[in-house]
Amino acid sequence: MKELYINARGMQCPGPIMQLHKTLKDAEPDTEVVIEVTDSGFKKDVQAWCKKTKNELVSLNEEDGVIIAKIKKKS
């Protein structure tokens, strides 16, 4: 299974969710993507994004101000 990576560190809202959208738009179902974000709003945003776009939030962690989310494409 393919795993993609997005470095969205330093990017401000709405940059990170736009990157997610672009990356997963043309990806195969079940593709996993790991995104690293420093925008503190992203922790809630990624949950809202996944819920709305019906993708699966596999994991969500924060280390030293960096939010790391793993998302699996479902829709």
Partner: peptide, 11 residues
């Protein structure tokens, strides 16, 4: 435009 882009990214 931030709202518009965000909404577009939400599909």
């Amino acid at each position: 435009f931030i709202i518009a882009n965000g909404a577009a990214a939400m599909g």
